[in-house]
Simulated scan of single mutants.
Amino acid sequence: MEDVQDGASPAVVRPRLLVLAAGELRLVLAPDAGGSIAAFTRQWREGSRLRELHWLRPASASGLAAANPLEMASFPLVPFCNRIRDGRASFGGREIRMPRNHPGDTAGHPLHGIGWLLPWELASAAPAEAVLALRVPADAAWPWSFSARQHFTLHERALQVTMTVRNEDTAVMPLGIGHHPYFPHHPGTRLRSPAAAMWQADAEVMPTRLDTGGPVPALREGVELSRLDLDNNFTGWERSARIDWPADAHGPRRCLVMEAEPPLDHFVLYCPRGQDHFCAEPVGQCTDWLNLLPRHGRDALGGAELAPGETLSVRFVLRPDWDGAGGA
């Protein structure tokens, strides 16, 4: 990966990785690992020394060898985000029967959708741009056929990700869409992410009730992550989150702003106490939205419906800053 030069064609290395470059930023994609991002970095020189700073938790060597999305930097969420209770739901007269799909989750609620478990095809690539594509036939787990694309565009100061899903079926399909980035959690890391309310959750991380207190005011103002221990959905998200890291051995004082567009109106924060990473996820629906819709409504839960042949596109941007341009 170190051999990629600015302006050069994107490099493919083994296991199959695609490296994009723009200025000091580098993006590494792992199509075979669920269409994941393997790394998002800044590379720069201090005198004769080449330095590297990770904006996302980098993929592990074992994760790359096994093409395991759970050990990547970020992976796509499609055609739903988060969990579906027991993998059972109904929509438009069709029954969803999704099997358990997460080796570390003993509760039996499948999560993260389907796309993260399948290899994606490289549809196109340029020095700072790439498109990954996926087509999924209908089956008992998800009884609608659909296709999806991820369009990655790397700029000198930003990474833009556009996700598009098309209903390839003959009936209306429910849809949730998003991404699952892992960020480094170093001592002193702070997060600001304004939202209207948080879904309290039970021991199996399933939503129980909405709460406007707790971490919601703290996240609106900005909070040091070491104070939190969460795995929760937030609704009424203002589609912006800012992460601040202090100057440390990893690099200078720096920040990253994540901005999203509708319908990414929901947010998941996974921040386990004592871990070296956390997840701040822009998503289009809350956990178990199909089963909770009759009780709570779409405003609190999100989610979309696609007619046959219809497409939905969503976009989010990661804007890192390392020289103070992002403000205090």
Rank of each mutant, 00 (worst) to 15 (best):
H54E: 15
H54P: 10
L56D: 12
R57Y: 11
R57S: 12
R57N: 07
R57L: 15
R57H: 11
P58T: 08
P58H: 04
P58G: 12
S60Y: 07
S60F: 06
A61E: 13
A61G: 07
S62K: 03
L64W: 12
L64M: 10
L64R: 09
L64T: 00
A65N: 02
A65E: 13
A65C: 06
A65L: 10
N68M: 09
N68C: 14
P69T: 10
L70T: 04
M72C: 15
A73S: 15
A73Y: 13
F75G: 03
F75S: 04
L77R: 01
L77A: 05
P79K: 01
P79E: 14
F80A: 04
F80I: 03
C81F: 12
C81K: 02
C81H: 09
N82C: 07
N82T: 03
I84W: 09
I84L: 12
R85N: 00
D86Y: 00
D86S: 01
G87R: 00
R88S: 02
A89G: 05
A89F: 06
S90G: 13
F91E: 08
F91M: 07
G92Q: 08
G92S: 12
G92A: 15
G93M: 08
R94N: 02
E95F: 07
I96Q: 01
R97M: 04
R97W: 07
R97L: 11
P99L: 11
P99M: 14
P99R: 06
R100N: 05
R100I: 00
N101Y: 12
N101T: 06
H102W: 12
H102M: 08
H102R: 06
H102C: 08
H102S: 11
H102D: 14
P103T: 05
P103D: 12
P103N: 05
G104F: 05
G104C: 10
G104R: 04
D105A: 10
D105V: 02
D105L: 09
T106A: 14
T106I: 09
T106P: 14
A107T: 14
G108N: 01
G108M: 07
G108E: 00
G108P: 03
H109Y: 11
P110L: 11
L111D: 08
H112K: 03
H112F: 08
G113Y: 06
G113I: 09
G113F: 10
G115Q: 04
G115N: 05
W116F: 15
W116K: 05
W116A: 09
L118H: 11
L118K: 13
W120V: 07
E121H: 14
E121S: 14
E121P: 04
E121N: 12
L122R: 05
L122D: 06
